[in-house]
């Protein structure tokens, strides 16, 4: 079946089966910042923005997103690079496998909350697992990034 949606602001057409998930569609089309981790809605490494909101691409059927906007790290390189600076400064980054999904989730958080508390941040990103950092350095980096973005 044919489906059209905006991928990083460019309208594209894809030929998919009704049970194909967005994660598969993106990776088949060389959007490799989107990682395949648990593939069961838990780890968050496949996160993308759908109409500006973070979603797990392993859980969204591609056929359902006709005319919607999908944004990945490839489409937000300046903003993600800015976040990466804070992650580097705080030592919040090791293998980098979770970074793309986490960075997109943080960008959405920034839009949704004006002054998020620590609990707001934790509740928002709890679905983005990291097996390297232990989260405290990430939390510091996110808070510094949000503060600097005001």
């Amino acid at each position: 079946m044919k489906v059209e949606f905006f991928l990083n602001d460019r309208k594209r057409q894809f030929d998919v089966s009704p049970d194909e998930y967005l994660l598969e569609t993106l990776r088949k089309n060389h959007i490799t910042s989107v990682k395949n981790g648990c593939n069961e809605s838990t780890c968050g490494v496949c996160s993308v923005l759908l109409d500006g909101k973070p979603v797990l691409s392993c859980t969204v059927l591609t056929i359902r997103i006709e005319d919607q906007h999908v944004t990945t790290v490839e489409g937000l390189q300046d903003e993600v690079s800015h976040i990466s600076d804070y992650f580097g400064d705080e030592g919040a980054d090791q293998c980098g496998f979770c970074n793309s999904g986490l960075a997109l989730t943080i960008i959405a958080l920034k839009k949704e909350y004006k002054n998020p508390t620590d609990d707001d941040i934790k509740n928002y990103i709890v679905g983005n697992l990291c097996r390297c950092s232990g989260y405290q350095a990430q939390l510091k980096a996110i808070k510094r990034y949000l503060e600097a973005s005001k």
Partner: peptide, 12 residues
């Protein structure tokens, strides 16, 4: 609702 996984899941 807030304790159900992360925002990426709750948006779906």
């Amino acid at each position: 609702l807030s304790v159900i996984l992360g925002a990426g899941f709750r948006n779906i």
